[in-house]
Amino acid sequence: MNEKASLKERVVKTVLTIFALSSLLFLFLIFIFILIEGSPLFLKVGLKNIIFGFKWAPTKGSFGIFPMIISSFLVTFGALIIGAPLGLSCAIYLSEYSGKRLKMILKPALELLAGIPSVVYGFLGVIYIVPLVRNYLGGSGFSLISTSIILGIMILPTIISISFDSIMSVPKTYREGSYAMGATKWQTIYKIVVPSARSGILASFILGMGRAIGETMAVIMIAGNALKIPMSLTDPLRTLTGNIALELAYATGDHRLGLFSTGIVLLVIIMALNYIANFGIKRRSQ
């Protein structure tokens, strides 16, 4: 009986270990397959010609994705400029000003909205924001600014939720101490609460960036996908993700390899951002 039980325990433990290792295996597979598909091109065309090349004409042998790297960062920063102040104010309002009732309603409501599919955001952007930009700012409306606005809205729930949590975790005594010294509520927030929650807020911004740079379908709907680096807010642009999604189904041969090289570059950027957010910032704060 006892032997049987211990055998069973051993089997269970082995199975669970295999399960646990499976996520590592999956990560490994993803890396390996994207690398295997994408790296031959780096060897053939040269790392420099891909990452710093200006011309993307994969059926004619040019695989430069530099404009897309720049464009990806431009929309990401654009999204942050719009999403970060709004999201942070919302988080501060929720934690410091709103009553308990309102908090109970608003917090889950905002998190529910994080579930709205990105294609819906993209669609509404095309219907409402693109014509606005076209009529008031000029250009076709499919532009850097429209994309930044939509991505800025899309990353709001991420920023609000994570910065709210980190602001809430600032001990009450800090605030009480500040009030006791005669500080106003705003002085307390500005001088005590936000600096103490700094690392969490920063992490929320970086995770928001990660979401913005990885977003695909909404972006190809609204960005216009031109290959040039945008020179003004109303110029169209193509991101790394957009490049993959636009052409993947069509691509064969070197063209497909080129898209996988785009994938490698995207993967490296995303991993770096996540590493900074999860390990660099969170760990230092512990």
Binding site: V130, S140, I220, L227, E247
Partner: peptide
């Protein structure tokens, strides 16, 4: 030219042309 916008189907080209006067 690289400054020309790119769409990935007949339908989406038509949709933009139908909504953008320029």
């Amino acid at each position: 030219d690289d400054s020309i916008m790119v769409q990935d189907s007949n339908g989406s080209v038509k949709e933009i042309v139908a909504t953008d006067p320029y």
